[in-house]
Design a protein around this nucleic acid. Sequence first.
DNA 1: CATGAGCGA
Length: 153
Amino acid sequence: MKNSSLSVVILIAVAIAAYFVAGALAPLQALHLSIAVIIGGAIVLISGGVSTNNDSPVSTSSNETNENIETQTLYVGNLPYRANESAIRKLFSDYGQVVSVRLLKDKQTGKRRGFGFVEMAASDAPKAIAALNEQEFQQRTLKVREANERKEA
DNA sequence: CATGAGCGA
């Protein structure tokens, strides 16, 4: 839709340019028009062929499993109120790829509740638990455990 | 601003 109108604009501009290019190449003005029409027709075929290629861009059946890594949500408790999400993400990213980190805040009061959830690769989750559980983080002993409710892989 | 066991819009 937008591609077609844009193709028309580009087509006109290219055709005009092709007309002058043809003027430089051919001595006769009739030949100018002929070459311009030929080039214009070629542009029409090319742009038409491109725009009508509306097949699904990534319909290759091998693309459906696009890095579907098994993720495990970890419960992280006893977090310091000063802790922000980036610090937690960086802390956990040393033991595995962190998918998402969410620190829970009270919706009513807006205050932080001191715990959160870290979603990371399931293969790296036990290592992160063993390494970060009962570990001191900003003078607070973290409690890292597998999440129980809400989301499960 | 202040709080400290716990499992989430």
